[in-house]
């Protein structure tokens, strides 16, 4: 990156955007909640609680957010010695991918009532898992086989690979966010889903044109370095696949952002890895029949095989 100050700013705003959902959590009698072991929910109270009130399983109503009518029976509630941490044990293992709603009846302390609250895996973790999934597990190049024309075209040199990857990531994020707005606020309310392809490709062209114009005026040096790749972005299927996927999955704003970032980053990663190998391969003795594109395909196949090892990866 030629402009470190700008890059740092970009990174900072990114972090701020990520932290937003975490900071927005409300304060109350219940200070924290999380999934414990397979069939446990751990509730942390803001103050020490009365054991007699807390440990009565009948006071708890717990259900999965999607299925409010199916109560999950609490078999036992254990309160830790400090009176702040309660462990709810359930008869059957919980499905921790779903958000659970817990409401506690008859529990007041110092004028504050414990209302119902949601227990789910950390949202930040979920967002990061979308990012990691798009980056590694479902890498668009190596496991979804998209964007291959541009991939093979621009992975001959490391410099080209970096330039293409970065340009692509920026356009990807911007166009995905615009597509998300369009999908949520125009296409869905007016039943225009069948126009998906036209609208998304139109937005991508618009983004490319806008980035082109802005870059040309604001930072000509950067434009000279990256301008050539802008045209190629449009011929990359990933750029149109991402809006289609996020429309299919009904992702919200943050999730869409993460998916786009992961898709762009994954493409950058794939390009960089591939170009590193291809630079070396120029020195290798390759049979004439395999020279050029065929050997590149074989290498990409090996990368794909290696990336298969990421499947099932579950960090968060």
């Amino acid at each position: 990156m030629k402009n470190p100050a700008m890059f740092r700013k970009l990174l900072l705003s990114l972090v701020a955007l990520l932290l937003l959902p975490v900071l927005a959590q409300a304060e109350g009698l219940v200070a924290g909640q999380s999934f414990g072991k397979a069939n446990e929910i751990v509730v942390t109270f803001a103050a020490a609680m009365d054991a007699a009130k807390v440990t009565n399983p009948a006071n708890y109503v717990v259900y999965e957010e999607q299925d409010p009518d199916i109560r999950l029976p609490v078999t036992n509630v254990a309160l830790a010695a400090d009176g702040k941490t309660a462990i709810l044990t359930f008869a059957e293992p919980l499905n921790s991918t779903q958000a659970h709603v817990v409401s506690i009846a008859n529990l007041t302390q110092a004028g504050k009532a414990a209302e119902s609250f949601r227990v789910m895996k950390s949202y930040l973790g979920y967002l990061l898992s979308i990012l990691v999934s798009a980056l590694l597990i479902n890498n668009f190049v190596f496991t979804k086989y998209l964007g291959l024309c541009v991939f093979f075209g621009t992975s001959k040199r490391k410099d080209t690979a970096k330039g293409m990857g970065l340009t692509f990531t920026i356009v990807m994020v911007v166009s995905a966010i615009m597509s998300w707005f369009f999908y949520q606020f125009v296409m869905k309310p007016y039943g225009l889903n069948f126009l998906q392809i036209v609208i998304f490709i139109g937005l991508v062209s618009l983004t490319v044109q806008a980035v082109d114009t802005i870059l040309r005026k604001v930072n000509p040096a950067l434009f000279n370095a990256f301008g050539v790749y802008l045209v190629l972005v449009i011929a990359n299927c990933v750029i149109i696949a991402v809006p289609l996927i996020l429309a299919d999955n009904e992702y919200n704003f943050f999730e869409s952002f993460m998916l786009a970032l992961g898709a762009g980053g994954g493409f950058l990663l794939a390009l960089y890895l591939m170009s590193s190998v291809r630079e070396r391969m120029e020195l290798a003795k390759i049979p004439p029949t395999f020279k050029g594109v065929p050997i590149a395909f074989i290498v990409a196949g090996q990368f794909a095989l290696a990336f298969l090892g990421f499947s099932g990866l579950n960090i968060f």
Partner: peptide, 18 residues
């Protein structure tokens, strides 16, 4: 298997080159 597409395309291109 999905990833074999790469190998397959590569091998067939090599075959045509040959």
């Amino acid at each position: 298997l999905p990833f074999a597409g790469f190998f397959c395309v590569g091998l067939m291109m090599a075959f045509f080159n040959y």
